[in-house]
């Protein structure tokens, strides 16, 4: 096969489904990666765990891109877009990993039979099949609340990914090792904004404190493992969310105190909600935007 131009190669490099993957005609992100499941690990559990981590990234990326054309300054718009792009990349790798261990199974419908796993998972699951936490699906609110949420979400994710580098699943370990550098950048960027807003004008301080009040309760279900996570923790594959709680608390307390913000009481733990597929209307509305085009025109090329 000899392509005449690079553009021919782009569209011909893969099979008929090549126009998927966000309409780029690009590769599947795990092309050529050894995706063998380690001994003693239930592929179904591994798939669901990849959905948990992948959906967190996909949904938060979608929230951050809602700031495009709306951010308070151009540089910050670029920053939020870049952060979203990093998260989208992590989501693609994780959803592709979920697909590679067969998470779609028999739920593959005719409509999704010919498209890559990552796209079938992103565009053709309903809200109750998503495994993201409520923290990432909540509305952005104003810029201060957005930054507080980004600080909390990236602090938790960074703490999890730092440990996940030791996972017995080599694909998860590699995705985590790559993600750690990106997440550290996101967390520190958000932390500096919270500092600037909290220790800024009376108005920015008030907004940052309101943001903290809105985001804090969303941490209640972050630190309790689901059954799937508990089994994978025992198998050396997953990170126990309870194990990152102290580190998260220390980081957030440090930032808020430096920002002259009041640290609210830590919320009491509750059973996992989003991780078990229980979501609010906010996710349904978000998915309607995210999935609308793909569902209305499943064979579209662009």
């Amino acid at each position: 096969m000899h392509e005449e131009t690079v553009y021919d190669a782009l569209t011909n490099a893969h099979d008929d489904a090549g126009h998927w993957a966000f309409g780029t005609g690009f590769d599947e992100p795990l092309a050529g990666v050894d995706t063998t499941v380690p001994d003693g690990v239930d592929p179904a559990d591994l798939g669901v765990y990849c959905l948990m981590l992948g959906d967190d990234a996909l949904v938060l990326a979608q929230r951050l891109t809602q700031w495009m054309t709306n951010a308070p300054e151009l540089e910050e718009e670029v920053a939020l877009g870049n952060t979203g792009l990093d998260l989208l990349g992590q989501a693609r790798l994780l959803l592709a990993r979920a697909g590679s261990v067969g998470v779609l199974g028999r739920s593959r419908s005719l409509a999704t039979a010919s498209i890559p796993d990552e796209d079938a998972l992103a565009y053709f699951r309903d809200a109750d099949e998503f495994r993201n936490t409520g923290l990432v699906e909540a509305e952005n609110g104003d810029f201060a609340r957005t930054m507080v949420r980004l600080l909390v979400a990236s602090t938790v994710r960074l703490a999890v990914f730092a440990r996940l580098r030791e996972s017995r699943d080599p694909v998860l370990a590699a995705i985590a090792a790559k993600g750690v550098h990106e997440l550290a950048y996101h967390r520190d960027h958000a932390a500096r904004w919270v500092l600037r807003l909290g220790d800024g004008t009376p108005e920015s301080h008030r907004r940052a404190q309101d943001g903290v009040a809105a985001v804090w309760p969303l941490m209640a279900d972050l630190f309790t493992a689901t059954d799937v996570e508990a089994r994978l923790v025992a198998a050396g594959v997953a990170v126990d969310p309870a194990a990152v709680r102290d580190e998260v608390r220390e980081v957030l307390t440090t930032v808020l105190e430096r920002a002259t913000l009041t640290v609210p009481p830590w919320p009491d733990d509750v059973a996992p909600r989003g991780r078990e597929g229980r979501h609010g209307e906010e996710l349904t509305a978000l998915l309607a935007t995210l999935q609308g085009l793909a569902r209305q025109h499943p064979a579209a090329t662009w």
Binding site: D86, G89, K178, E182
Partner: peptide, 10 residues
């Protein structure tokens, strides 16, 4: 280079 590098396909 980055997880979300859009240039990998190219």
């Amino acid at each position: 280079t980055y997880s979300g590098c859009p240039a990998m396909g190219v």
